[in-house]
Simulated assay, not measured.
Amino acid sequence: MRFRGRTSGAIVVAAVVGSVVLTGCGGGDAEAEGDGRSPSAGTSAGAREQGTTEVRAAYDKTAEAESARMTIRMKLSADGKTITSDGEGVIDLAEGDSVMTVRAQDGTLEQRVVDQVLYQKVTGQKAPGGKPWIKIDLKKAAAQQGLGNQQLGDPAQTAAYAKAITDKDVTKVGTEKIDGTSTTHYKVSVDVAELPGGEQMSKQLGPTLPMQVWLDDEGRLRRQQIDMTVDAPASASAQPDNSAAPQRLKMSTVLQFSDFGTEVDAEAPPSGQVADMTDEALRGARQQS
């Protein structure tokens, strides 16, 4: 987690792609967007349709809780090296603001997301200029990933993503308990091409993105797991000055929510204590892609 281009690039990839998928699979009028099959399609088809409806609606229902306590576990692997991290904190489910403490192999950092800007302060380290905090503009990072001016984490955008999941993409696994709460476990295959910016994303992620979700009895998200492999385009990996860039990055992210309605107090650090590392992070992301 040192302030270097490669690590910052990985953070941007995780933040952009992870946030897009978290937002992207919700919402819309799922029942009104059915595939036109008749009620006689059969019990299994009906079960798939119900599962699709529940998964599509889960993100809106979770956002309606306004806030929650969140834990995250992330594993990044590239060039034969693996970085693992885990964090805990609180998140505003409607706006996307959050406050977290994240621990990894080489230290602990305090992280805030405020108005689509990521702030991080690593214990015992200084950013350029001796500043304690760095910041990365996630909107700018999203634009680089071909996602335009969309607001990451904005539940108002969820209707545009509902098309990315069809009845054949959702499979009910069973029921499980998470921290004593009963949940229903689904496996989901997200059609990357149907996501905004999907044409560019599919070049790195492939045609589908595997995801698992666990929903409580109120239809809210309790756990989400995303396992993705990001491949560097051949044109980028063939360039001599990018010879050190990883050909493939594997990322597994598990988000878990609890204590819905908890208070969230996310404020940006004083501007004089912050070094803007957006451009460096984007350079690192380009080298990896």
Rank of each mutant, 00 (worst) to 15 (best):
Q247W: 00
P233F: 03
Q212G: 06
G148N: 13
D265S: 11
G261D: 11
A162H: 09
G272F: 12
V254C: 00
K177P: 00
D137C: 01
A63M: 07
Q239E: 15
D86A: 13
S271W: 00
Q212E: 15
S289E: 11
A232E: 00
L282A: 03
K126A: 13
S8F: 01
A236Y: 04
V173M: 10
A162M: 09
G80I: 11
S237E: 15
Q105H: 13
V274Y: 01
A193N: 12
T7M: 04
L138C: 07
Q256T: 14
L109M: 14
P270I: 07
A104Q: 03
E199Q: 15
Q273D: 15
T229P: 01
V16K: 03
S67Y: 07
L152V: 06
P155H: 12
E267N: 13
S243M: 14
K177S: 12
K177L: 08
D29Q: 09
K172I: 12
T62I: 09
Q157K: 04
G46R: 06
G9H: 02
L215H: 04
K121Q: 13
R37S: 15
R112C: 07
A193I: 07
T7L: 06
T82M: 14
S38G: 11
P233Y: 09
Y186F: 11
A94I: 12
I91R: 05
P207Q: 09
E267G: 04
A30I: 10
D115Q: 15
P240I: 10
K126Y: 00
D231M: 14
R2E: 14
G130A: 15
V13R: 10
A15F: 06
D154G: 11
E64D: 14
A57P: 01
M1C: 08
V90Y: 04
G174Y: 08
A104F: 11
M100R: 06
L195Y: 08
I136N: 01
L138K: 05
D179M: 05
V20N: 02
V190K: 02
R220E: 07
A232K: 12
H185K: 07
D276E: 09
G284F: 05
G272S: 09
G130M: 00
G89H: 00
K121L: 04
T183K: 00
G34A: 15
I72N: 02
E263L: 10
D29Y: 03
V192D: 06
K121D: 05
A15N: 10
T183N: 02
G9I: 03
Q157E: 15
T229V: 15
D86W: 06
L205I: 09
S202L: 05
A58Q: 06
T52M: 11
G219K: 00
G51C: 11
M74H: 00
S237T: 12
T166Y: 02
R56W: 14
K81Y: 08
G129R: 04
A156R: 05
G24C: 05
A63Q: 07
Q145K: 07
T71M: 06
N149W: 10
D241C: 02
Q145L: 13
T108Q: 10
D115P: 06
G272P: 02
L249E: 05
T181D: 12
Q120I: 08
L282P: 02
Q145V: 05
G146F: 03
G180Q: 02
M201G: 04
G26A: 12
V188P: 01
V173N: 07
D169Y: 06
E54N: 09
T181I: 14
A281P: 01
Y59N: 09
D169T: 10
S77M: 09
S289M: 13
G46P: 04
Q256E: 15
